[in-house]
């Protein structure tokens, strides 16, 4: 596959008079480890929503592996290989991790509309559930309702679910947000172990995490891309420092 895995061209989104996203263009190469940073209110969430199809852009286009998906719904984009996690856990509180993962895998296999076969009678699906559970260290609580899991485990399940759709592009929205210190290492390890051929865009406030994980960083300020480059260049960039020092508190 040649060309970027995910590309945005001239994305604009207005809410009434408010310009939430102003002419953003960027590309995510296959297997990329890229981070998107920016102060609160910079429009990071709006940008993710535009990329994943939750909202439609006022102008501009989105390409997924070279295909124009601007008019596609969120679930169609998922089936084409664009998956995401959520900043605030979006899980199924009364389903178990096994059920949640089994569901995601069935959907990817296009067997999700099957209303006859009993879920879990296909060995391939069971094997894949097991693989994901092991990889994210969720075996111990795999048959417990999700809402009873410790918060850090729920964050891991959040990523495991996104991965179960076998994405080519994965958007991680603050995966470590709110995770207590002692469980943070698990998240970092899980991020480091993500398949290398999947392009990843990490949206994060935690600069330690950003600088350990990313090989490329984009900075979003007031809905526009301020700059983009290697971590060491971004760290030295005066404008970026100004934005963050001026905002205070998110170092």
């Amino acid at each position: 596959m040649s060309g970027p895995a995910l590309e945005a061209r001239g994305l604009v989104r207005q809410f009434g008079a408010l310009l939430a996203t102003g002419n953003v263009s960027f590309a995510l190469e296959p297997g990329a480890r890229q981070a998107l940073i920016g102060p609160n209110g910079a429009g990071k969430t709006t940008l993710i929503n535009l990329l994943t199809g939750v909202i439609r852009p006022t102008e501009g286009r989105v390409f997924l592996q070279g295909r124009d998906v601007t008019a596609f719904s969120a679930s169609e984009r998922v089936r084409l290989g664009l998956s995401r996690t959520f900043q605030i856990n979006q899980l199924f509180p009364h389903l178990t991790p096994i059920e949640s993962l089994g569901l995601a895998i069935s959907e990817r296999n296009r067997s999700g509309a099957d209303f006859w076969r009993v879920a879990g009678t296909r060995p391939a699906i069971v094997a894949e559930i097991e693989d994901l559970l092991t990889r994210f260290g969720l075996e111990a609580e795999m048959d417990q309702p999700t809402h009873t899991l410790p918060y850090g485990k729920q964050r891991l399940l959040e990523i495991a679910l996104a991965l179960a759709t076998r994405p080519r592009v994965l958007l991680l929205d603050e995966p470590a947000a709110g995770v207590p210190e002692e469980e943070r290492q698990d998240i970092l390890a899980a991020l480091a172990a993500l398949p290398s051929d999947v392009a990843i865009l990490l949206i994060e406030h935690d600069m330690d995490l950003v600088f350990t994980f990313a090989t490329r960083i984009s900075v979003l300020v007031a809905g526009r891309l301020l700059t983009e480059g290697k971590p060491e260049d971004i760290a030295k960039d005066e404008r970026v420092r100004a934005v963050y020092l001026g905002e205070d508190g998110h170092g």
Binding site: T52, S73, A74, S75, E76, V78, R79, S83, R84, F86, Q90, L91, F92, P93, H94, L95, E99, S100, G102, L103, A104, S106, E107, R108, S111, G112, A113, D114, F115, W116, R117, V118, A119, L161, A162, A164, T165
Partner: peptide, 25 residues
């Protein structure tokens, strides 16, 4: 019991996430 039933449970529990897993809710 079927995957379809499981998908319905997912829609009931969290429609946003169900859509984000590629389910045509």
């Amino acid at each position: 019991q079927s995957p379809f039933g499981l998908a319905l449970a997912a829609i009931r529990e969290n429609r946003l996430r169900a859509g984000a897993l590629g389910i045509a809710t």
